[in-house]
C-alpha cells in the first residue's frame, strides 16, 4: 500500500513540476494557461488519490467515509479547474490578447 501511495505522490509531483515549468517557459498568455489548467488538475487528482489511499491504511468505515469526502474534492477540481481556465482564456480573448504565432518567435 505504501508503495502505491509513494508512486502516486511522485507521479503527482511530476505533473505539478511540469505545470510549473510550463508556466515559466511557455511564450504567451494562452499557452501558459495550458499547463496551469491541465497539469494542476491531473496532479492534484493523483496527490489527493494518494492521500485518500493513505487514509484507509488502517481500515475502518469512518476512515472510508473520510476518504470518499477527500475524493469529492477531486470531483470538484475536475469540474472547476477547466471551467476557471476557460473563463480566464475567454476574458483574455475579450480583452484583446493576441495569440502567439511563429512570427513572434525570438521576441
Amino acid at each position: 500500500m505504501d508503495v502505491i501511495v509513494i508512486l502516486l505522490l511522485i507521479c503527482g509531483l511530476v505533473f505539478f513540476t511540469g505545470g510549473a515549468v510550463g508556466i515559466l517557459r511557455f511564450p504567451d498568455f494562452y499557452t501558459r494557461l495550458h499547463p496551469a489548467g491541465k497539469m494542476d488538475t491531473l496532479g492534484s487528482f493523483l496527490m489527493v488519490l494518494a492521500v485518500a489511499l493513505y487514509n484507509i491504511h488502517d481500515f475502518s468505515w469512518a476512515a472510508l467515509l473520510t476518504s470518499l469526502k477527500i475524493l469529492l474534492i477531486v470531483l470538484f477540481i475536475f469540474i472547476l479547474n477547466p471551467t476557471a481556465t476557460h473563463a480566464i482564456v475567454d476574458a483574455g480573448f475579450r480583452a484583446g490578447m493576441r495569440p502567439w504565432t511563429k512570427e513572434d518567435r525570438g521576441k
Binding site: F76, I79, L80, T83, H86, A87, D90
Partner: peptide, 11 residues
C-alpha cells in the same frame, strides 16, 4: 458563456 453559466448553476 454556456460553460461558465451551467457549471456555476450546477455548482
Amino acid at each position: 458563456d454556456l460553460i461558465v453559466k451551467n457549471v456555476c448553476r450546477i455548482l
